[in-house]
Design a protein around this nucleic acid. Structure first.
Length: 712
DNA sequence: GTAGGGTTAG
């Protein structure tokens, strides 16, 4: 999961030296969203205050214009000021009049445009009524199409279809608009039904259908459509059809088809379009060829923020962190202003790499350029601070948001769960409900994991049942995985098995892995075997399963089985991911592997650990040697344990920093039981606060105790 | 009237 952290060292120096970051604010700041634009808020208040008044403000020249029968001008002014209701009032006064020469088409067109900007379905219906009532006006196809579009954009496909069916004259736009409405709503069968009936089809019709299929995760059908379009002589590929086809290929994914279209793009000169290039580059990335994606990216003449963000994001997805961060810095240098998508991508990379420094600078940068803070960038900030172990700043950011969205609440709840503060997590969940937000399936993962980390089994079960019974959601596979985790960590295996047997879906690997983990804690060999066997089938290449099962056998002293598992691993070429831990001291990241002797201060570290070991034993520490897989003598086992990567990192932290400095260590795997108990002793002996973030949560050791209360 | 990027946990 984790990268080779050794690279981070270079990243940091490069990143921190970067001119763009040297002037950044170093202290964390409140990230405050800008208040919503004044124009829209004033328009709504205007609508509200004016709705009951018969006519216009006395000082307005609207009255005058109306008197002079200059209705078009009057409505143009009103529309400009977004005074929609007043416009409608004028029209209502006109619809039964005999007035000739009123340019109704222009008037209704601007009115529909405004209505469209406001996405107001009620008003759309009123305008529609008005049009029908206006005897002096028969709507042309243009107005009808606008109405059609308005209905479908407002999500009212039934009204749209009624309007479509009522049209006495339809052009290709009418058909396309209706199809697009269906396709965007995911009603592909309806869309295709109309598509087939169309008298003629243009580029628009094809690309709408193709992207409709892509969006609904049906890339094969999308591509088939594209193929049949290519067979038609009357339609040529344009940038839209090509982009939709590329998106279909990315979803398959199939690099060979992509190459084909790449050639086509070059031949037809479509390569001058930014979006086409961007999709092309992204296609290569999604087909697993990141370097080709970069090749295309590097040859783009005009790279906008979307293109940069996509490329950066792909690097992060492939866990090529350095290249992603470097590209981000390059983007800043080239003068492109990142947007919330960019920030979210970068901040999430910081989260998973625990790069709080970088994240904090990005935060500073966000504040400085005051980017339009959509809440998902803010929620990425909350997530980042949580993941970096700085829940205090996470909560400050959260409280600085005027209206935190569901993702931010969820991040915070999950953050508290990870930090072993379940009561806080659950109280934020209750606060969220009070604030009127509806939790989604992810929120409940946070809630359930809070219960799991705290051993609140019955409370967790209660929440689990509330998902369907109280909140009207459906249980996902992840919810089941959480509840199995909850039960098996407390040794309630019978209930866990009952739930597994009654699940409506096939249990996934996370669920079996949780169960296996629980079996390890309780030495449940029989169930462990069942879980491991399934896991071997689902993901035969995952070393963790072999190691865990072997550890369970080792604890029970069944060494034959241990040896046989090790042999299977060798036969299948499964390699155990080495544990590594890292710690930052004076802006330098120091990485340690198990038994690592490559650090310049290795001798001091090992001497210190030996000394520590003696003092720990005096305090009553007993090495838990069952965490050592190998079938070796007790003394050797103890040695193996002493040099786990997190111990090396902690030891280095202690000798390299002044007394009393808190120590923060990150580990790529879960910390073992022996290290957990040893670190408790260490925190007391050296009188330091030691935080360890392992792959599943935070442990804050202080004065011989851990924040997780030994339950994790 | 059509095409491209992001998030929450395990």
């Amino acid at each position: 999961m984790k990268p080779k952290p050794i690279h981070l060292r270079n990243l940091f120096t490069k990143f921190l030296k970067s001119p763009n970051f040297s002037t950044l604010i170093r202290k964390p700041h409140h990230y405050q969203p800008i208040s919503s634009s004044s124009s829209s808020s004033s328009s709504t208040s205007l609508l509200k205050t004016n709705s009951s008044k018969p006519f216009f403000k006395p000082n307005d020249n609207i009255n005058l214009l109306c008197k002079e029968k200059k209705f078009k001008e009057a409505i143009a002014i009103l529309c400009n000021q977004k005074r929609l209701k007043e416009s409608i009032q004028i029209l209502e006064s006109l619809h039964h009049s005999e007035t000739k020469n009123i340019p109704f088409a222009t008037i209704y067109s601007s009115l529909l445009q405004l209505c469209f900007d406001l996405r107001d379905l009620k008003l759309a219906k009123r305008i529609h009524d008005l049009i029908n009532k206006t005897s002096a006006f028969v709507p042309g196809v243009f107005i009808s199409n606008r109405l059609l579009d308005l209905y479908s954009k407002c999500g009212c496909l039934i009204s749209a279809r009624n309007a479509f069916d009522e049209m006495c004259e339809r052009d290709i736009c009418s058909w396309n608009t209706m199809i697009s409405g269906y396709a965007k709503a995911g009603k592909l069968e309806e869309a295709y039904g109309l598509f087939e009936k169309m008298p003629e089809r243009d580029n628009f019709s094809w690309s709408t259908m193709i992207s409709g299929y892509v969006r609904r995760d049906r890339p094969r059908e999308a591509l088939n459509l594209f193929r049949s379009m290519q067979g038609k002589t009357n339609v040529k590929c344009n940038k839209f059809t090509v982009s939709s086809a590329l998106a279909a290929i990315s979803a398959l994914p199939c690099r060979r088809f992509g190459k084909e279209i790449h050639g086509h793009i070059l031949r037809t000169g479509l390569d001058s379009d930014t979006v086409v290039w961007s999709v092309l580059s992204d296609m290569y990335a999604k087909c697993g060829s990141l370097d080709e994606a970069r090749y295309v990216f590097d040859r783009m003449l005009d790279r906008d923020v979307v293109t940069w963000t996509a490329m950066i994001g792909r690097y992060f997805e492939e866990k090529r962190w350095n290249e992603g961060f470097e590209l981000f810095v390059e983007m800043l240098k080239s003068g492109i202003k990142p947007n919330d998508f960019t920030f979210a991508a970068v901040l999430n990379a910081c989260s998973s790499q625990a790069l709080e420094d970088v994240g904090r600078q990005v935060h500073g940068y966000m504040v400085r350029i005051a980017s339009d803070p959509l809440s998902f960038a803010a929620s990425a900030l909350v997530h980042m601070y949580c993941k970096c172990g700085n829940i205090e700043t996470a909560i400050r950011v959260f409280e600085g948001m005027s209206q935190p969205d569901l993702v931010s609440w969820t991040s915070l709840i999950a953050g508290y769960a990870q930090h072993g503060q379940p009561e806080k997590a659950l109280s934020y969940f209750e606060l969220m409900l009070k604030a009127g937000l509806k939790p989604d399936h992810v929120t409940f993962i946070g809630v359930l994991s809070a219960c799991t980390h705290a051993g609140l089994v019955d409370k967790g079960l209660e929440y689990f049942h509330s998902i369907t019974e109280k909140h009207g959601l459906t249980h996902t596979g992840n919810h089941y995985a959480c509840v199995i985790d909850l039960l098996s960590r407390s040794g309630r295996f019978q209930e866990a098995e009952d739930i597994i047997d009654s699940m409506p879906m096939k249990p996934d690997k996370f669920l079996w892995a949780s169960l296996l983990g629980g079996c390890k804690s309780f030495g449940n060999l029989k169930l462990a075997k069942r879980a491991a066997e399934v896991l071997f089938e689902i993901e035969p290449g995952n070393a963790a399963t072999y190691v865990t099962l072997a550890n369970i056998y080792a604890s029970a002293g069944i060494w034959d089985e241990v040896a046989s598992i090790r042999k299977t691993m060798d036969d299948r070429g499964v390699v155990k991911k080495p544990g590594s831990s890292w710690i930052k001291v004076y802006r330098q990241v120091h990485v340690f592997l198990v038994g690592d002797e490559s650090h310049p201060r290795t001798k001091e570290i090992y001497d210190f650990l030996e000394d520590l070991s003696r003092r720990m034993k005096e305090e009553g520490y007993v090495p838990k040697t069952d965490y050592v897989l190998h079938d070796v003598e007790e003394e050797q086992k103890e040695q193996n344990l002493s040099y786990h990567s997190e111990k090396l990192a902690i030891a280095f932290g202690v000798i390299a920093t002044p007394p009393g400095t808190p120590i923060k260590v990150f580990k790529n795997l879960r910390t073992c039981g022996d290290c957990h108990s040893a670190i408790k002793f260490i925190s007391k002996i050296v009188a330091r606060e030691i935080t360890v973030r392992d792959s599943s949560r935070f442990h804050c050791f202080k004065d011989g105790k851990c924040s997780c209360g030994d339950f994790w």
